[in-house]
Write a protein that binds this DNA or RNA. Structure first.
Lengths: 149, 149
DNA sequence: CCCCGTGTTGAGAATGCGCCTCAAAAGCGC
DNA sequence: GCGCTTTTGAGGCGCATTCTCAACACGGGG
């Protein structure tokens, strides 16, 4: 039915029910950034019978296949997001846990320059800004997941 | 004997043997970046009788007192380093695990700007470059601790 | 369209890092 | 030195993640 079934096969994974559901979830959920626990809870909430171990296993497989990216926000649980090709960095609100994405060509360029000056090539990088909202009405919108951190 | 004894008292901590030893260790070790496990092993190797719990406790106290900084390199264990006032970011060699430090005012500035544009103030940030050595003779120098990561 | 072999799943146990508990021991003001 | 308070060491606990293993599902071949 879905092209996701083909997507999975093309990366050498059987199109099983849990895998399809997890991929679907990432494609339709509003909050792009989910922990393994989030994924588990959301699927259970859809009356699916799935184990946490499967969620972890599938997330790792998807990461290795390049479908998802895994991020380690400050201390604690890993967060996954759909890999849609365009690289970006993250900004995490310390108050409400909200995550925003940004991309700054100048920062990227400086990074490469710094590494090159020391005789290295950047293979990957992690840039996280932990911020506080200036506005008094910081939207403590209870996202699908509890505030990170 | 040491001024460290005074340092500790001035931040409201008794000058106990374990605390003095841990502080000494960070001041004299060549590899600035140590995990709790590293600290534990190094002290045991010096025939000191210390518990891992104490190491964790003291490291956390030192972090809160501003003597040490805690970093979360990619996934896994936290790494501590002496806080000597001058902020910097890190570059980690994927081959030998070596860690170098750098500071780029332009990147710092861009970060603040990006956050400000979105109505946030940067409280703290994490920037790690995971790099590969260009030179064929990448010095896989076995530092006191096993390669991070 | 069913059968079988291999890949996958779910449950619970296991791991690893870090923190907590508690009785024994060590600082330190007097 | 005395005693009160803080700290220590050992082991246990908690959380996130991974492993183990028997039961089960996918999907190619007949």
């Amino acid at each position: 039915m879905s092209s996701n079934s083909q997507n999975l096969k093309s990366i050498g994974l059987k199109a099983t029910f849990p895998r399809l559901k997890i991929l679907d979830l990432f494609q339709k959920v509003e909050n792009r950034h989910l922990t393994a626990e989030d994924v588990y809870r959301l699927l259970i909430a859809e009356d699916m019978d799935i184990g946490l171990a499967t969620v972890y296993r599938v997330l790792t497989q998807f990461e290795q296949a390049g479908l998802l990216e895994r991020h380690y926000f400050e201390s604690g649980k890993a967060v996954f997001e759909l890999n849609e090709g365009h690289h970006h960095d993250h900004l995490v609100c310390l108050q409400c846990g909200r995550v925003e994405e940004f991309f700054d060509p100048e920062i990227e360029e400086r990074q490469n320059k710094i590494a090159a000056e020391r005789g290295f090539t950047v293979r990957e990088h992690a840039l996280y800004l932990y911020v506080e909202c200036l506005k008094a009405d910081c939207p403590h919108k209870s996202a699908s997941s509890a505030p990170a951190r």
